[in-house]
Amino acid sequence: MQRVCFLLKVRQDRLGEYRKRHEHVWAEMREALSAAGWHNYSLFLREDGLLVGYLETPDFAAAQEAMARTEVNARWQAEMAGFFEDLDGRGPDEAMRPLTEVFHLA
């Protein structure tokens, strides 16, 4: 199982709304993530907008590709794109770049 951690930056002026949106993530989005192999998926948000994502999956590239093929993900990404800084024309899901794991205590 791959452990994946990534960083994104939420716009300071949209932190409250970003938190609210994640209080009620669409059921179909949650189902699609699970079906695509996203397990133990968590998002952590710091007050300055730093967003840390963590998930476990057998194959991150395959999990990303599976989500990219879903209609619900396209709708979610379109709605969420305006919350982030420095996407350079990409969607939030395309801007995720996994960090390199340097230690794990099993």
Rank of each mutant, 00 (worst) to 15 (best):
V10M: 00
A63T: 13
L45N: 02
H104T: 09
V52P: 01
M80K: 00
P58D: 15
R97T: 09
W26K: 14
E71F: 07
Y54E: 05
R30P: 02
A78E: 10
P98L: 05
E23G: 07
A81C: 07
L33H: 10
L43R: 11
R11Q: 07
Q77R: 10
M1I: 15
M1Y: 08
R69K: 12
R46T: 09
Q2M: 08
E65Q: 14
A95Y: 08
A95P: 11
L55T: 12
Q77N: 15
R14A: 04
R46P: 01
T70L: 00
D48A: 00
S42L: 14
Q64K: 13
W38S: 01
R97P: 03
D13A: 10
A78S: 14
A27T: 15
L55N: 02
G89M: 05
A27G: 12
M96D: 05
L7E: 12
E23F: 07
A61N: 09
D86Q: 11
N73V: 08
C5I: 11
M1T: 13
W38N: 03
P98E: 01
A36Y: 06
R90Y: 05
R14H: 06
A63Q: 04
L87E: 01
V25G: 03
R75V: 12
G82N: 00
D59W: 11
M1R: 12
A63E: 02
R30E: 08
F44M: 08
R21M: 06
G49Y: 04
M67F: 03
L55S: 04
P98M: 03
G37N: 03
V25A: 05
D93M: 13
P58H: 06
A74M: 08
R69E: 10
L105T: 11
L99G: 05
W38Y: 14
V72H: 04
A106E: 13
Q12N: 13
N73Q: 13
M67Q: 07
Y54M: 10
E56S: 07
H22M: 02
R11A: 05
M80N: 04
H104A: 11
M80F: 06
M67D: 00
S42C: 09
L87C: 05
A63N: 06
L15G: 03
G82L: 01
E23Y: 04
E94Q: 14
V52N: 00
L43Y: 05
T100R: 11
L50M: 09
W26S: 14
H24V: 13
G82C: 04
L99V: 12
L87F: 03
G37I: 09
A36F: 06
E31G: 00
D59Y: 13
